[in-house]
Design a protein around this nucleic acid. Structure first.
Lengths: 249, 249
DNA sequence: GTTGGCTATTTTGCATTCATTTTTTGTCGT
DNA sequence: ACGACAAAAAATGAATGCAAAATAGCCAAC
């Protein structure tokens, strides 16, 4: 029998690894920890449709474990905001309203804004060079209309700034929120907006400039605005997915 | 026999009596949810010494439940950063290094900075009036050297700003980090520094001013600096607890 | 054909039990 | 007396069992 989600009928395939039998692993990490990592990735990757009900039993079979460690992992994922636990009704992948997304984007903007400010206090010339390198690389993707490469490099730039802030607590929080947003495939159509794309490139240049000058509060401002604009573009696309010129040149 | 923490011998008294009355039915009627709320408060209040080992069995007896829901709550608290779970060695209250505190303060600064920026977009005149009211109240505490009242009102002001940001995600994250810091009684001696106290009052006036003018990025800057100064004062006190003039006039 | 109510099955929540791992304790030898 | 080693005790991690709640299934009534 195929495993399906009763509510939606969407089939769920197990995450990587052994599907059913208990190969004896060197228990380097605890089971619930392992499950947590796998489930988190699984959810973040978007393998489970939003709001879909996923019975514990099914997940247990899928992961080849009992319910106890699974439930522990689910509690953590709920605390992280990835799923929600309805009393006596099981776990559902958290459905993000447009308002939720706006809020998330703003918080991300605030965190990156903070990261930029802190980075200016501690960043080395080498790190700036590395970011410049990424910037040029991204510019190449932009010229070639390589959306995927662009987004990848763009993400690395922002992560570099966060890393340069030298604040593990910030980094963890950043990853957490980033994971919540990543579920939403908002960016799929973003690159079609050529105008916004060009704008983003200019903003990135301003970011680099402020970073070079170690202008903390200025960079903070620019980063916030940059993310704000990103938010606007992303949210628009949720309501009207098709727009502007086609992606291919 | 009295229930004690083996490692330290410090007795642990149960959190608020569970004499059958229920008041916090917010979104958790389930047992693990209730346990989570109670344990979180219990830890945040500082009832368990840092790094102290607390056997599950003991907590279970204390709370009158079995280990399953307790362990679920512990996993969540660990995810929140309040405690840490050592594999096969149980849960310990997380010990914050000076670096951890610095990081936490900076993140708090970033979140409040963000809150101020967002608040400028949405705050009403009535809310500003309310904050002004709190400000005068706080000024009274300042004049009377009422440290406790001052801190209480100060906290309400900052919470009001966060509330005015109209961002539940931000508010939740803010509460989370605030809880982590609250465990540390850093503020106990802060008010003894008269100079810093006067400085903080001036900063608060600048905050109000920027808020009235809805000057978002300016307020963002001021708030960050304000929290940064707070951080400096707090951290200093961890290394040299006694300083400056006595509190009583 | 649809709606309302009743029963059966599934699913969740928690307690209990089992298996390792860690910690304590007791003993022996030097 | 002190330290090393071994056995006992206790603690943790995971699986299973059981009661309550929720879902679905079914039949009758309109």
């Amino acid at each position: 029998m195929k495993s399906t989600i009763p509510d939606t009928g969407v089939p769920i395939t197990p995450p990587a690894g052994n599907g059913g039998d208990r190969q004896e692993n060197r228990h380097e990490a605890s089971l619930h920890g392992e499950i947590l990592l796998r489930l988190r990735d699984y959810v973040v990757e978007g393998n489970i449709p939003e709001g879909a009900r996923v019975p514990e039993r099914q997940l247990c079979e899928m992961l080849g474990i009992s319910r106890t460690p699974l439930r522990e992992a689910l509690k953590v994922l709920a605390a992280e905001g990835l799923i929600e636990l309805l009393p006596n009704r099981g776990a559902r992948v958290r459905q993000l309203s447009q308002r939720d997304l706006e809020e998330l984007f703003d918080v991300m903007a605030g965190l990156e804004s903070l990261a930029g400010r802190l980075a200016c206090e501690a960043i080395t010339d080498e790190e700036i060079s590395a970011i410049e390198q990424l910037h040029y690389e991204m510019y190449g993707h932009y010229l070639h209309r390589d959306m995927h490469g662009y987004f990848q490099t763009n993400q690395r730039i922002h992560e570099s700034i966060v890393a340069a802030a030298r604040n593990e607590t910030l980094k963890t929080a950043y990853s957490n929120f980033a994971g919540r947003i990543r579920r939403v495939r908002y960016s799929a159509n973003f690159a079609r907006k050529r105008q916004r794309w060009a704008e983003a490139m200019r903003e990135h240049e301003a970011i680099l400039d402020a970073l070079r000058r170690r202008a903390g509060s200025e960079l903070s401002d620019i980063l916030f605005q940059h993310l704000r604009n990103k938010r606007t573009a992303a949210i628009e696309h949720l309501t009207e997915p098709q727009e502007d010129a086609p992606a291919a040149p």
